[in-house]
Amino acid sequence: MTVALSTQPLSILAAGGEGGGLKFPPVENLVKWPAWFLEGTVFEFNKIAFINFVAFIVPVVLFFIVSRKPAAVPRGLQNLMESAIDFIDVQVIKPAIGPDGKRYLPMLLAMFFYIWIGNLFEIIPTAHMPANARIANPLILAIVALVMFIGVGVKHHKLGYFKEVLFPPGVPKALYILVTPIELLSTFIIRPFSLAVRLFANMLAGHILLVTFSVLCITLWGFQILNIVNLVAFPMLVAFTGFEFMVAFLQAFIFSLLTAVYIGGALHPQH
């Protein structure tokens, strides 16, 4: 401590470099992970890559088991996986794209499971790291969404899609000076940016929140009298863990829903 603190309560929390005190880990300890192998190459494999691997292998294996012998009357695991398909179908595709959105089901399903399982690692004990708290995954998924909705628009409306987006019909001609740059910015830059940042920032914020409360609980454990604060702090930690469980699901849902909305907008630009 280079600064002599004049305030008493703070001196407890910052009781010095050696003798305990509230030591919040530097942020790179929260989100950066050492390489497991292939260090220094572009294929550097670390904890995030491993979580990505789990998020890839779990849905693929589950769906593969189910799809080897799909029964006419679904039971057990097949019921579970089909309810996932139904969820994407009814909650995401139907309201966002419409009945002609069935062919985007595999992409949205892959997106949903990849994000959800990556997020769930935030609260899985011993892992405690959401894969999407690094910008890499959200960035890739947002670029996939961007390429997807532009591709769908160009495929169905040729180059008229860009005209529809940049020069929306029903706007006075003079206003195009104002409208076109805004539309260009909001459709092709803000959309993928906000998609990526929404997912990334939500998971990073949740991760930091849980770390903060964990550090607080552990630190308070060492102070005899301040231990009673744990009566509040620890239940809060548990409650936030439950909350983050919900957020993990909600963010996966919203990401696939927004992707579906953008695809639906490219498919039917008049709406």
């Binding site: 572009v42 550097e44 990505n52 693929v60 892959a110």
Partner: peptide, 20 residues
């Protein structure tokens, strides 16, 4: 590091393609 980007992309596209 590019590792996270590369592996994230590889695993996502694998998920997509295998599911599809």
């Amino acid at each position: 590091s590019a590792g996270e980007l590369v592996w994230g992309a590889i695993f996502f596209f694998l998920t997509w393609i295998l599911l599809r």
